[in-house]
Structures are given as structure tokens and as C-alpha cells.
Write a protein that binds this DNA or RNA. Structure first.
Length: 435
RNA sequence: GUGGUCGUAGCUCAGCUGGUAGAGCACCUGGUUGUGGUCCAGGGGGUCGCGGGUUCAAGUCCCGUCGAUCACCCCA
């Protein structure tokens, strides 16, 4: 029986997932991020920053646990890879070279109600850069480029990265005279769901905004641009605040950098507030074109206060791809296909059991040259053996004989072949994924 | 975690106001005496998600539970 929120995919889906992971991993390494894996479990107080209880964390309990044992060292499964990483950095700061760039591709767990593309156990692919003291801002500009590169090389829909900067929002709200900027942010974030009229109402009710202040917040949220024009649009609203200026400058750098290196990838979207609460500046959100209704398939941002060691600070910026969500959504819409359901490229037909050793030798010769090969399970009629290959999408059936022949069962073409020399076309060697 | 909708064969679904299960596709066998996909004939397969209740009788009604999905919450 399935368990809600813990998906188990079939081999074709898993092959696609592995290929996606491979692409993401090689791209991360191409940019110099070093591999890291942290334990699945963290002390509860590491996971729950300063008394936070809203996070749906799975807690670990031993079957033989003593009921009256102290529970101040409770363990929980991590719900993202950034918090454990921050802990790791603080703990190993002495052994690391800064700025430290690393990637992690691991499962995370959240006890939320599952839906399509929302699971309780899912895979994240995460990059972060942290530094000791101050982290130069150009790393904020690099993040979207890496993600765009990783996902752009996959047969998935076009990726759009929406960027904002919390300093812009906070500065703007403060310049406007609104003090509870966090609450304003949370409310404005619901814009797409509840609409501008309702957002204005809520702002007036919960943070004591005036009609004019609420309208100004909505005007800010409406700003969206693929170039630096958003700066003027914000300035036109006439709000003055040093933090706002700082945020605008940063956001501009991200947008301009992306415009040069990956045109069309990044949009400044001033209504974006999403993501974990530890973000202090840049925030990113990732949408798949045509799949916007399924929400973000990746997000990240700048965190200046997450990792510490003694009185040292380790500010960082990171990005996380929700691999399971992205694939779950695409699988659900049948938007990804793979050319066969097994890795096998060649099935060696078996004329009779006596010839199995000879067939094993043929398979061995092919495998030695990197061609995925299996020998037929039984010496059934050749028609059945071809059918065995056909059902799995295996493109070639090898017939031992004098001489050996190999048949492309898609075209029916059958030619003489030597197991020590024959090569399939490069496109047939591994299963092909199409979007 | 809260609320709504849904759950019949591997898949897509039918089953009227309750009368103890069906189709198409898929699968297996044979026609086809060892090179598939077509065609023809035959065949196997379902504790109607699971558990309880109402009833002479439940796939059909009620409750619970599990799963899927949607909204909220949260977020990948």
C-alpha cells in the first residue's frame, strides 16, 4: 500500500529522475560547487529557529525509547538542505576554505498535506555559497545563471526565474510608514490568490495601513520588468528610504547580469516575497512555462544571519531545485517520455539452453565496450523473444549464428555483426528522454 | 493539521429508485513446427480501497479508516 506523500516511481520515471540529477550535478560542478552530503537528521532546536513551531518536522523516536527519558536532545528529519548546511558550516568553519561553495542533492521531509507536486518526502538539489564576515553580492547574481544552465539543458519546459529583494519591500514599507513589514510581506504575497482588493482590505485591518499606504503597496507589487526599468517605476512612487535604495541597487545587478548572460531567464517581480523566513535580501522563485499553476519548482535567496560560530557571521546565498516537484508535475501531465523502460540496448536471443554460455560470451563482449546487454530469459520461440524486447523498448535483438546477426526491431533491418566490433548508433546506446 | 470531491479487472470506464459484477484496450493460449507488431478463435484475471453498520439483500445507503486530488496553511 502506498503511504500518502511518499511517492514511489516506476523504472522509466526513475531513469528520467537519475538523468535529471546527473545533469544538475554536472552543471553544479561545472561552476565549481563541491559535493557534500549531510546527515538526514538534526537536533530539533537546529531545525526550529528561535522557538518556531509552525514547521511540519518529522521527529525521530526509538521504538525502545524510555518514556521518562529527557527529550531535550530530540532529533528531527531535515526539511531543507540550507539549515543543516548552515549548521555544518558553523561546526566546521575551521576546516573550510571561504568563500565555500557546495552542492547537496538529498531527500528532505515535511509533514504537510500532499498534493500533486507536493510530497512529504522529496528530493532537493541545492547550491550555496557562504563566506566568513561578508559575502560579496556578485554571488547573488550567479545563482540564477547556474540554475538556468542546469535546467535549460533538460527536456523540460522553459524556466523563468522571478527575482525580488526583501530590502526593496521592507525599505519601501518602512519609507511608507508601515512598521510591521513582515506582516505586509505575508499579505502582499497572497496577491495572486486573493486579489488586490482583498489585499488592501487585509493591510488596512491587520497592519493599520491607510488606504493610500495600501494602494502604494499594491502599486509596488504590480511592478515587473525584464530590465532595469523597474528602478524608475519604483522611484516614481515617491517613497524614500535608504534600505529601499540598497535593495534596488542589488536587484538591478541581478537583473542586469542575467540579461547579459542568459537573456529572457530572469524577471524582476516585486510581488515575490516567498520562500523561507531566513532570507534577508535577494529572493528567487522558479516557474516552468505552462505549468505556472503548480507553483515554484525551485527557490532560494540571500541569508545573512543563518550561520554563526561564536561571534563570527557566515552570510550565504543559495538556491534549491525541487526535483521531485518538477518531475511529479511533469509526469502528472505526461510531459516527459523515455524511449525504453529498461537500460538494455541489446537483447541476445537464446536459441536453446545449451547455447546459453555462448550467448553469455556475446553479451560479455558487448558489455565490455559499454553496450548495455542482457540475454533472453528463456529459449522461447524467437517471436516471443523479440516481443520481450519490443515490450521494453529494447531496440536491438542479437541472433547468434554463423555468422551472428543483429536486428533493429523498429525498422526490421537485420545485418551481420561481430560482437567484438559492432556499435549501435550513439542515440540508441542509452534511453532517450523527450519532453 | 482543517475542509471539499473521488476510489469498480493492469489501464480507461459502465453498473437506473439497494436484488450478491460488465465493456474496450492490455494480458495468456492456439491457428502460425522457432524472427514480433495484423487478423481469427479461445482463455485467465476483481475480498467492487479497507473495516464496521443499516437491511431479507449493499458496488449502490450510513460511519470510520487508508489512498488520490483540490482549497486553506505552508512551501520544492
Amino acid at each position: 500500500m502506498p503511504i500518502s506523500g511518499f511517492p514511489e516511481w516506476m523504472p522509466p520515471q526513475r531513469m528520467i529522475e537519475q538523468r535529471v540529477i546527473e545533469r544538475i550535478r554536472t552543471t553544479f560542478e561545472l561552476y565549481g560547487y563541491a559535493p557534500l552530503e549531510t546527515r538526514s537528521v538534526e537536533p530539533l532546536d537546529t531545525l526550529l529557529m528561535k522557538g518556531e513551531t509552525s514547521k511540519e518536522v518529522y521527529v525521530l523516536r526509538r521504538l525502545q525509547a524510555d518514556d521518562n527519558a529527557k527529550d531535550d536532545d530530540q532529533l528531527g528529519l531535515h526539511f531543507d538542505l540550507t539549515v543543516p548546511f548552515a549548521r555544518f558550516v558553523g561546526e566546521n568553519a575551521g576546516k573550510l576554505q571561504f568563500p565555500f561553495r557546495r552542492y547537496q542533492i538529498q531527500k528532505v521531509w515535511r509533514g504537510e498535506r500532499p498534493q500533486e507536486g507536493r510530497y512529504r518526502e522529496f528530493l532537493q538539489a541545492d547550491i550555496d555559497v557562504v563566506n566568513r564576515g561578508e559575502l560579496p553580492f556578485h554571488y547573488d547574481c550567479e545563482m540564477p545563471l547556474v540554475i538556468g544552465d542546469a535546467l535549460g539543458g533538460l527536456p523540460v519546459p522553459r524556466v523563468r526565474i522571478q527575482v525580488n529583494n526583501r530590502k526593496v519591500c521592507e525599505g519601501f514599507y518602512r519609507g511608507l510608514g508601515l512598521e510591521d513589514t513582515a506582516q505586509v510581506l505575508r499579505t502582499v504575497d497572497k496577491l495572486d490568490k486573493i486579489g488586490p482588493a482583498r489585499v488592501a482590505e487585509v493591510l488596512i485591518e491587520t497592519v493599520g495601513a491607510t488606504r493610500a499606504q495600501a494602494d502604494a503597496c499594491l502599486e509596488l507589487a504590480a511592478i515587473s520588468a525584464e530590465d532595469g526599468s523597474f528602478v524608475d517605476a519604483v522611484r516614481k512612487l515617491g517613497v524614500e528610504d535608504p534600505l529601499l535604495d540598497e535593495g534596488l541597487g542589488e536587484l538591478l545587478r541581478v537583473v542586469e547580469t542575467a540579461r547579459e548572460h542568459a537573456p529572457g531567464l530572469v524577471t524582476a517581480e516585486l510581488k515575490i516575497a516567498r520562500g523561507l523566513d531566513y532570507y534577508t535580501g535577494t529572493v528567487y522563485e522558479t516557474l516552468l512555462e505552462g505549468y505556472e499553476r503548480f507553483g515554484s519548482v525551485g527557490s532560494g535567496g540571500r541569508y545573512d544571519n543563518l550561520a554563526t560560530s561564536g561571534n563570527e557571521r557566515f552570510p550565504g546565498v543559495g538556491y534549491s531545485i525541487g526535483v521531485s516537484r518538477m518531475l511529479g508535475v511533469l509526469f502528472g501531465q505526461n510531459a516527459l517520455n523515455i524511449s525504453r523502460s529498461v537500460p538494455t540496448c541489446v537483447l541476445v536471443a537464446l536459441p536453446n539452453e545449451e547455447q546459453r554460455p555462448a550467448c553469455d560470451r556475446i553479451a560479455g563482449a558487448l558489455r565490455k565496450r559499454g553496450i548495455p546487454t542482457e540475454v533472453a530469459p528463456t529459449a522461447a520461440k524467437f517471436g516471443k523473444q523479440i516481443q520481450y524486447a519490443d515490450r521494453r523498448g529494447i531496440p536491438y535483438v542479437w541472433f547468434p549464428g554463423e555468422p551472428d546477426t543483429v536486428k533493429d526491431i523498429r525498422s526490421g533491418d537485420q545485418v551481420e555483426a561481430d560482437a567484438a566490433a559492432w556499435e549501435p548508433p550513439a542515440g540508441d546506446l542509452r534511453p532517450v528522454i523527450a519532453g
